[in-house]
Design a binder for these strands. Structure first.
Length: 424
RNA sequence: GGUCAGGUGGGUGAGAGGCUGAAACCAGUCGUUUGCUAAAUGACCCUACGAGUAAAAUCGUAGCGAGGGUUCGAAUCCCUCCCUGACCGCCA
């Protein structure tokens, strides 16, 4: 959530920045916001003045012993009429506040200057390419075919149990998933300085609001009939750990890692990636979150990116780093790097991680603050990144490490986690 | 799920319709004194919003789990909900 006070101070700056996010009628929306805010503050002043009057009359009444005296009756009726005016104003104020909130809650974060301005992914910039793409002396198969041939995957049974976009991994493939999670968490805790957590994957509405999934992206989330939501990413639970409190300066930065199942409705993705396990309703992901003083956030994003890259480097998978454009970035992000891994069967790079700085955008929604050195309460900066998406890592390993005979070699760093060197 | 007990500032914990934004103690911050690895002592020390300021100071309003209600006046009385703890039941 953007800070209303900041918008007040420099409306034109915000108009320009929001425009770069390609929001319809953004100028008019911001003008309306300012108008509502001015109106709200004007009414608030009047209301507070009336409350002041009410309080002081009440104070006079408290010293008046005789409740039947003329004076008591007069003052009582005076205060009654003031109360009516206050009530009217209150209704008006509540309406204005909810209109203000509606706008404020729907505005995306402001991109940093270095973010390329573009409506969609065509404006993304490749900032790095790493590893060399393997030349096959046979035609590489797609991950789902490879897995099916080895009897390691079952879409039919999963569909019967749950529906489309669900999968059952079997035997060594199930083991590979577990090995990957352990490998990644070990890396992030032992070498990258993140603290391991095990978190709820069902969360309340407030938490989903805090990280920005609600209210705008309601249609992409699974909801239970008990007002709980299945998290679409571990980011929700990890980031909300600092919600509604004032974190001590010396506790920063907080670097948190978790592995959770993630749930996505994929409502707008009908027909997209229907082959294999590229796009599932449920998938595992190792998630990194950093909570830090805002002034360090850009540096922290680079650090986080390199932590995620480290996973791909150790797995010896070819990848590239993309700086996302203003129109392709997520709602809460001010700057995002995507890591894309090489997928031989598709002959292209596909997203396997997304690392974002959300500046104080989420913190503002969550009321996540910290005490500065000079004892002021300021909003925190939050960052999140995948380190990595497990399902897509499995795809990348199966396809990049496949052998001509249909077996899969296991990347060296995973061998001790699998206690074997090949699958199949 | 049932019964009981609770939810007050960073912590412990008073308050039981106006004198309470909230005692006291602990922690914390800034001084003073003596000195030695500690003690004594004073002041300060919740948050949000609005006004104000160069920034402070300062002023106003609101907040005692949340939301309603009663009242001229609610942390305090009433209602609903949420959460925590204990015990019982059930259960991985």
């Amino acid at each position: 959530m953007l800070n209303l006070k900041d918008i007040r101070k420099d409306l034109n700056f915000f108009k320009e920045k929001i425009k770069s996010r390609f929001i319809n009628n953004s100028d008019q929306i911001l003008d309306l916001l300012i108008k509502l805010d001015e109106n709200h503050r004007k009414n608030l002043e009047t209301q507070q003045e009336l409350q002041n009057q009410r309080n002081s009359i009440s104070k006079n009444l408290s010293v008046e012993k005789d409740k039947n005296s003329e004076k008591f009756k007069n003052l009582s009726s005076e205060v009654s009429s003031i109360k009516n005016s206050i009530a009217t104003l209150e209704t008006e104020l509540a309406k204005l506040q909810s209109n203000i909130n509606e706008i404020l809650h729907s505005l995306p974060n402001i991109p940093l200057d270095e973010v390329p301005v573009s409506q969609d992914e065509n404006g993304n910039i490749e900032v790095k390419k790493s590893g060399s793409v393997r030349k096959f002396d046979f035609k590489p198969l797609s991950h789902d075919v490879l897995a099916k041939n080895l009897d390691l995957i079952d879409f039919e049974t999963a569909a019967n149990i749950s529906g489309s976009r669900f999968v059952i991994l079997k035997k060594d493939l199930a083991k590979l998933e577990r090995a990957l999670i352990n490998f990644m968490i070990d890396l992030h805790t032992n070498e990258n300085g993140y603290l391991e957590h095990n978190v709820p994957i069902l969360v309340n509405e407030k938490s989903m609001f805090g990280t920005g999934q609600l209210p705008k992206f309601k249609d992409e989330q699974f909801q239970t009939n008990n007002n709980l939501w299945l998290i679409p990413t571990g980011e929700v639970s990890l980031t909300n750990m600092v919600a509604d409190k004032i974190t001590k300066y010396e506790d920063l930065p907080l670097r948190l890692v978790t592995s959770t199942p993630c749930f996505r409705l994929e409502a707008g993705a009908a027909g997209k990636d229907t082959q294999g396990i590229m796009r599932q309703h449920q998938f595992s992901k190792v998630e990194l979150v950093s909570i830090i003083q805002p002034e360090f956030r850009v540096k922290e994003l680079e650090r986080m990116l390199s932590c995620a890259e480290k996973v791909l480097e150790l797995l010896k998978l070819p990848y590239r780093v993309m700086l996302l454009s203003s129109g392709d970035m997520g709602f809460s992000a001010e700057k995002t790097y995507d890591l894309e891994v090489w997928i031989p069967s598709q002959n292209k790079y596909r997203e396997i991680s997304s690392c974002s700085s959300c500046s104080t955008f989420q913190a503002n929604r969550m009321k996540a603050r910290y005490k500065t050195i000079d004892n002021k309460n300021e909003l925190l900066a939050t960052l999140n990144g995948s380190g990595l998406a497990i399902g897509r890592t499995i795809i990348a390993i199966l396809e990049n490490y496949q052998n001509k005979d249909g077996t899969i070699s296991i990347p060296e760093v995973l061998q001790k986690y699998m206690s074997q060197k090949t699958i199949g």
